[in-house]
């Protein structure tokens, strides 16, 4: 149930920590796992003490950036084809380019297996595990 103003955790190393949903794409209903949304970066992740000077890891996005993202975890339970339900503790997303490639290179955290059916195999391969 991701809609306008929903705050999501960003679980990749693109530099965003907390993002806010501003639009759900290709859908008139709230977004769920595997849906593409437009977000605004609200909080940046700080990599160590030297965050402003480029020391290896640079934030690829900054606060206030408008980016596309893919929802990977939702609090609202999702029903699978065999009737089982899966729900997560938080709402989380992964930032992507407009082409659909993920901006970050690493994900930290479990993602929903519903991504498989929606052709987000790049995100699935980056994720440490999927449920």
């Amino acid at each position: 149930m991701i809609q306008l103003k929903t705050m999501l955790n960003c679980i990749d190393n693109s530099g965003a920590a907390l993002v806010e949903c501003v639009n759900v794409l290709k859908k008139k209903r709230p977004a769920t796992i595997g849906d593409r949304i437009v977000v605004v970066v609200q909080k940046q992740r700080s990599f160590g003490p030297s965050d402003s000077s480029g020391s290896g890891i640079a934030n690829k996005v900054r606060r206030g950036d408008i980016r596309h993202a893919v929802v990977v975890r939702v609090k609202k339970e999702m029903q699978r084809a065999d009737g089982s339900l899966v729900k997560f503790e938080d709402n989380a997303c992964v930032l992507v380019h407009k082409s659909g490639d993920p901006i970050g290179t690493r994900l930290n955290g479990v993602v929903g297996a519903e991504l498989r059916g929606k052709r987000w195999s790049k995100i699935l391969s980056l994720a440490p595990m999927h449920v």
Binding site: L85, F88, E89, A92, G109, V110, V131
Partner: peptide, 14 residues
């Protein structure tokens, strides 16, 4: 899992 709580409801006779 990976410090995120996950709940799954499974149908027993599935």
């Amino acid at each position: 899992l990976t410090r995120t709580a996950v709940e799954m409801s499974v149908k027993l006779f599935s």
